[in-house]
Every structure is written in C-alpha cells, then in structure tokens.
C-alpha cells in the first residue's frame, strides 16, 4: 500500500467487482455444472497442458467435475456466508455496543464482561467443535461464525458510542425529552455507521478464511457444495498427480481475501481516521490476533501504518 490516495484503489476494487459479478452471474459464466461430473472425464488437466481439453479450461476433479465451474460457484458460498455472518453478528454486536455504551453503569459492565469473554476464546478451536458437534451444514457454519464474531463489533461500537454520547446534540435531545431508543437510533447510530462499515469490511476476509478452514477440515459447508475450502480438501489426495484441483480454489480465495483486506485498510484510512489502530484482522491459523486489553498498545497490532 503506497501513500494513501483519495481514489478507490483500483486493484482490490477490480477484484471485488469481478467477484460479485461472478457470484451473481455464476449460472451464465460457468461452462459446466458445479456439482455433477462425468466420471469418465475425471482428473483432466487444465487446457494448456498435454491431455487438456477446451471443455474444462482448468481441468476436472476426481469425479470429473469441472474445476472452473466449481470455483465460479464457490464464490457464491464465500460471499453469502460472509454477508450473512457479518449481517447477523454485526446487527447483534452493534445493538449490544450501542446499548452498553449509551446506558453505561451496571449494564455496561455486565455486557462488556461478556464481550471480553467472547473475545478471549480460541476462535478456530471452538468453531471446529461447535460445527462438528452440531452437524456440518450451511446454516450452522453461519451461526457459529456469527457467534464468534459479534464481540468484535460490540467492543468497537461501544467505544464509539461513549464518545458520541458526550456531544451536545445528544444532550439537547435528552433535554427535549426524547426517549433513549429514539436518541440511539436517530442520533448515535448514524454516527457509528462509518465505523461499522470499516469493521465489517475488515471482518469479511476473516470470515472467508474461517469458513474455508472449517470446510477444509470437513466441519464446514458439506459436500457436494463447491465451497473453496472443500475443494482444496478434495484435491489434497491428488497433489502429486492433479495439483490443479487444489491450486485454483486457493488462488481464488487468496485474491478475494487480499482484495477485501486492502479495501478494508483503505476504507479505514479514509472513512474513519480514528480507526487507524485496527488492522486487517484476516487470520486463519493463529486463531486471531485477538483484541488486546487496553493496557497493551494496540496501535501496532497488525500495523495500520497508513503512509
């Protein structure tokens, strides 16, 4: 990221646009069915290799399913899971953060204790166990990810609310006899929207990686769905002979997460300078750079060095 510029960064912007278009128009773009394959056509290499066929530009997997088509449809899963999970946890976390920050006092202490506990859990481990035990399904993946994600929203929105609460227009509304609900929804919420947007974007990459990890471990979206993580797990046994099954979904995932992270960093720098200390928290393996208690300098954590 060179010196931050005013314009939307073209690289992540283009990738994200392509991704959304791909997801929306998957049925028109995909040359074959993503879930059905011709077993006689199995393990065909990409078109530019010897034995490659034009019908399968990126080759086929062990059931003869078209890799390109699966990667294209896979974008839908990543996108829908992250939209749903972030929608759910964002709504819940924001509501909690607003109430906690606005009410203060005992409510605040109680809710923030919960949030801290939520933040302190080892995310991946809990997610694996939760999904595994509750039967892997699309719905459970979304629910479990949301369950692990809301504290991040709650914490940040609460902090923001504390600041906004002190401003004159809120005091005026209180004097005018407005109800708390009215003040929160009309005065405070609109002011946290930029922050909300930034956190949401920064979490998208994290959700995509988490969903991929769960699918890879066999506790995510169940087969035969063309989830990228699942495809990578599928290709594992054929690394030596049919690497293309593993390579392409991974590249798709990498590009997507990269684009979202770059976009998130850019949004953070431009929408909301206050948030500079947040980094793109896209983590897979080390469960997360979990938010750190106040005593530690967060500034640097994952380096928002802006320029």
């Amino acid at each position: 990221m060179p010196a931050p510029s005013r314009e939307l960064p073209w690289f992540p912007g283009a990738i994200l646009a392509a991704l959304v278009l791909t997801a929306v128009f998957a049925p028109y773009l995909a040359p074959q069915s993503p879930t059905e394959g011709d077993i006689t056509q199995k393990l065909i290499p990409p078109v530019w290799m010897e034995r490659g066929e034009g019908r399968h530009p990126l080759g086929t997997d062990r059931f003869g399913r078209d890799v390109l088509s699966r990667v294209i449809y896979g974008s839908r899963i990543s996108l829908v899971v992250s939209l749903l999970a972030i929608g759910l946890s964002g709504t819940f976390g924001t509501a909690l953060g607003l109430i906690s920050g606005y009410r203060g006092g005992f409510t605040d202490s109680l809710l923030m204790r919960f949030t801290d506990i939520g933040l302190s859990l080892p995310t991946i481990l809990i997610a694996v166990v939760l999904v595994a035990v509750s039967e892997p399904s699309f719905r459970n993946v979304v629910l479990v990810i949301s369950l692990l994600l809301w504290p991040r929203f709650a914490r940040q929105i609460r902090g923001e609310t504390l600041g906004i609460k002190e401003q004159d227009f809120v005091a005026l509304a209180v004097v005018a006899g407005r109800s708390s609900t009215w003040i929160i929804s009309r005065h405070i919420f609109p002011n946290v929207v930029p922050t909300l947007l930034v956190i949401s974007t920064l979490q998208v990459g994290y959700v995509i990686l988490l969903e991929g990890t769960l699918s890879f471990l066999g506790v995510g979206v169940p087969p035969p769905n063309p989830a990228w993580g699942l495809m990578i797990a599928d290709g594992r046994g054929f690394l030596a002979t049919a690497w293309w099954i593993t390579l392409f979904p991974g590249v798709a995932m990498l590009l997507t997460v990269l684009a979202v992270n770059l976009m998130g960093d850019w949004l953070r720098d431009h929408l909301d300078p206050k948030l500079r200390q947040l980094g793109s928290r896209a983590e897979t393996e080390p469960a997360a750079i979990e938010p750190v208690p106040e005593a530690r300098p967060r500034g640097a954590a994952a380096g928002a060095d802006g320029g």
């Binding site: 990890t213 890879f216 690394l239 390579l247 991974g250 990498l254 897979t284």
Partner: peptide, 29 residues
C-alpha cells in the same frame, strides 16, 4: 520496504491450509 509490505499483506490473506499444501507440492512433491 515495498517488498516486505507485499509479503506482509499476502501473509495476512493466505489461507494457511492452502499454503501448506502448496509448500508440500513444491518442496516435497
């Protein structure tokens, strides 16, 4: 500096399980 930052951004966007498999493909297979 630019190279190091590309390295860092990539590292934060790369699915670890996929990286592992790619490493196996290149360095083992």
């Amino acid at each position: 500096d630019s190279a190091a930052r590309v390295f860092a951004v990539l590292g934060q966007s790369m699915p670890a399980f996929w990286l592992g498999l790619m490493l196996i493909l290149i360095f083992a297979v």
